[in-house]
Design a protein around this nucleic acid. Structure first.
Lengths: 301, 301
DNA sequence: AGAATGGATAGGTATTACCTATAGGACTGT
DNA sequence: ACAGTCCTATAGGTAATACCTATCCATTCT
């Protein structure tokens, strides 16, 4: 039993004749004859009585007609539901962010996105990179905003660069180097370092910068967020490395750009390669990249 | 969009892979690939994400799945509804009878039929032949029990012979010929005749018998039913011709078989040629013919 | 690294839905 | 009663297509 057979059947039932139905359905009358025969054969019963040159539904045909109609209209409904959901921007996006970006970067973007697409529901998950990637792989998460490039194999993920921001040394105000215009990590090699806990990828970024400067940082404190670290710096307990977006005015603290041009953190949005995004998800991704492009300088440099 | 594509889609969604689904659906894996591609192309959107070598429904695919399932199960429902209604003997039969048969012939058959098929609903319509045939043509009536052969063109109707009954002369008891073993119509040619009203086909049967005997009957009374006529005969107002099944014991009335061997009335069931009968209707027809065959002699001869 | 697994692609074949032409019935008008 | 028409059914041929096997390519497991 095929959809076109149901279509023909309904057309004949509606128009009351094979020839009339042939004109309506834009196929030849013999085709209708054949297809209805096939259908009747498959069902093992007649759908129409051919009496003289008039055609009339059998009792069984009358019983079958509403079901055939229902099937066809459900098919149309399914088709248009698909069409609808691939044009309209409603639905949900699940976006992940790492903790060292979450509080600084996402909130304003979420606000404008929600204003623009009120139908969209955005869920934000804050986790360290490997857990985010795991969620991405399982399909539970649609986009993640993380430090890039990822250390994963080849093209498992697709990356959309967002911004690249400079790193700063965070020094106590009284520190000897606090007034400098720039600073090298070498100059801090004896200082006690305050860094993020293991697992946070910015810790790796900072450690990598130290390694490039051939500095072995003396880590005396580990935290899960920058604000705790900054408080410690204010209290004169040590120094730290902070990305531009985490700078915040503090009385006891001074921020000095690192002289190393490569001391930066790149942030990007990533999606699982091969995953198809819904319209909302696509819109969210576009919103991220577009918003950044429009004010590319406010955090970097 | 075709049913087999929906079947494949569901199989893949259920089994979680093209190859597994291929084994289940007994088609090759490339065929599944192709058909899903067609489906996706027609819908203008992906149904599955192929990530690595795992396959997962897209959001749209997830939305589409229940609709696809519904379509398939509705199809099955329709198919089995057809199968059901072409095996089970429930439903209704509309049967027509002419007035000169109705009271004598149908009642006992209806009783046994209803006892045997309690689910069946039988409607009886009593009308003169042309009106019955009109209803048959329009499809409003399924079977008619009438005098045969019909005067209609060729094979518009199909006839199932039931019984052939002798005709009797109905005479007042005091009539000179009332004691005879048989009688010819010629012997009655001066008698006043009581016949059915025009339109009743038995009137034609009787008139035809007269014509064969070269008798021009002097019709003095016309009625719609035999019992009125018999009462008139009892009252000595005239004579009449009566089919065997209408014989009834009356004090003032004597029935004498007509000598003419061809003075009979044949009764048959007729159906519109080309009309397909439902199982109940078929059963009713069979019931008619079978019941008659089992006691073929009780009215004829 | 090599083997195994799973989906996509290529190319060929068999099915089949469709067409045109025509047969064959059944109504309509003269 | 007849030709003319209006139907559906059938016959035969063609083009579309669902399916197959063989193979490729990427991922995953050992």
């Amino acid at each position: 039993m095929e959809f076109h057979q149901l279509r023909y059947f309904c057309a004949i039932a509606d128009s009351g004749g094979f020839s009339r139905a042939a004109r309506l359905t834009h196929v030849s009358q013999p085709s209708l004859s054949q297809q209805i025969h096939k259908l009747e054969e498959e069902l093992g019963a007649q759908l129409f009585d051919r009496i003289g040159r008039t055609v009339r539904l059998t009792e069984l045909g009358r019983a079958f007609l509403p079901r055939a109609r229902a099937l066809l209209s459900d098919l149309e409904a399914a088709r248009s539901a698909v069409a609808e959901s691939s044009t309209s921007i409603i639905g949900s996006v699940c976006v992940g962010v790492i903790p060292t970006i979450a509080p600084y970067f996402l909130p304003p973007l979420l606000a404008t996105f929600s204003r623009r697409y009120p139908q969209a529901r955005v869920t934000v998950v804050e986790e360290i990179t490997p857990l985010l990637l795991e969620r991405m792989r399982s399909g539970a998460m649609d986009v993640a905003v993380v430090a890039v490039p990822l250390q994963t194999r080849g093209h498992e993920f697709q990356t959309f660069p967002l911004i690249e921001e400079k790193l700063y040394a965070a020094l106590p105000r009284q520190h000897a180097l606090a007034k400098r215009r720039s600073i090298t990590l070498g100059e801090l090699h004896d200082e006690p370092f305050l860094l993020l806990r293991d697992g946070h990828c910015f810790r790796e970024t900072a450690v990598a910068a130290c390694k490039r400067a051939r500095v072995q940082p003396k880590i005396i404190f580990e935290s899960g967020q920058f604000s705790s670290i900054l408080s410690m710096v204010c209290a004169g307990l040590g120094v730290s490395i902070i990305p531009a977006m985490a700078l915040e005015k503090r009385n006891g603290c001074q921020f000095v750009p690192l002289a190393d041009d490569r001391a930066t953190r790149a942030i990007g949005a990533v999606t699982l390669n091969g995953r198809s995004l819904s319209r909302v998800q696509q819109a969210f991704l576009t919103h991220l990249t577009a918003k950044i492009a429009s004010k590319p300088t406010h955090l970097s440099r």
